[in-house]
Computed example of a mutant assay.
Amino acid sequence: MNYGFIDDETIVKQAKKICDCIGHGMHGTAMQMIIETAVVETGLGRIEDKTVGAGMGLTQFDELPFKDILKRNMKSRDKILKELGVDIGLVEWNDLRYNSYLALLFARLLYWLKGDPIPKTIEERAAYWKLHYNTKLGKGTPEHYLEMNKKYGIKAKV
């Protein structure tokens, strides 16, 4: 199960292009955040998430946040279409299943809408992920985030 994962270099290029459009965040760590999210959720495509009702694609994106993002990001639709070549109004949740670019894009849009700055350190990002992505109801922990990123994370500088 690879969820559309090709290789680390492609993921870094996709994340950079997405963040060049939407923003790298106050601390310049948005690329790390969305890549680390893919790592913790699926081992960057190396592990199938067998959780019942699991999210979609490389970042295991849930359907309710997906629908919310579509509603709340329509003001950015033209910019995203022009700079990223994606008309988010035409994207369906299932499209994220095998498309790493869309999975990373929607993860970035979710974090962007949160309003809280993406933290500088991986330890802080682990807690941020738990709060904003995995949520209180999710089984993931900041410790799991750190373990997965140590084991499956991209070794090249992001």
Rank of each mutant, 00 (worst) to 15 (best):
V86F: 03
I6F: 03
E36Y: 02
A15S: 11
M148T: 00
E9V: 07
Y111A: 09
L84G: 04
I47E: 03
E41H: 08
G43Q: 01
N134G: 08
G57Y: 10
I80T: 05
P119H: 07
N149R: 03
K67T: 04
I118S: 07
C21S: 14
I18T: 07
L137K: 15
E41D: 12
T37M: 02
G23F: 08
V158L: 14
Y145C: 09
K82F: 03
L105E: 06
I47S: 02
W112L: 15
V86G: 02
T135Q: 05
L96E: 12
D68R: 13
K79L: 14
E36K: 04
Y152E: 00
K130I: 02
T42W: 04
P142R: 05
A126H: 00
K139N: 15
D20T: 03
R46K: 13
F66E: 12
D20P: 11
W129M: 11
E143V: 07
G43E: 04
K16I: 14
A103D: 01
H24K: 05
I80F: 08
G138N: 00
Q60M: 13
E36G: 09
S76D: 14
K50I: 14
Q32L: 11
C21I: 03
C19D: 00
L104Q: 01
G45L: 10
L58R: 06
N2H: 12
L70C: 12
M31E: 15
N134M: 04
G85C: 06
F106S: 09
L81T: 09
R72G: 13
C19I: 04
L109Y: 08
F5T: 02
V40N: 08
G23V: 09
L113K: 15
H144A: 14
E9G: 05
R97I: 13
I6S: 11
A127S: 13
M74V: 12
A126N: 00
L96T: 06
K120G: 00
L102M: 00
I35W: 00
I18F: 06
M74R: 14
L44R: 13
I88V: 12
A156S: 13
Q60Y: 09
K136V: 15
F5W: 04
T59E: 10
G43K: 01
E143T: 03
A156L: 05
V52Q: 06
Q14N: 11
R97D: 15
C21Q: 09
L84M: 11
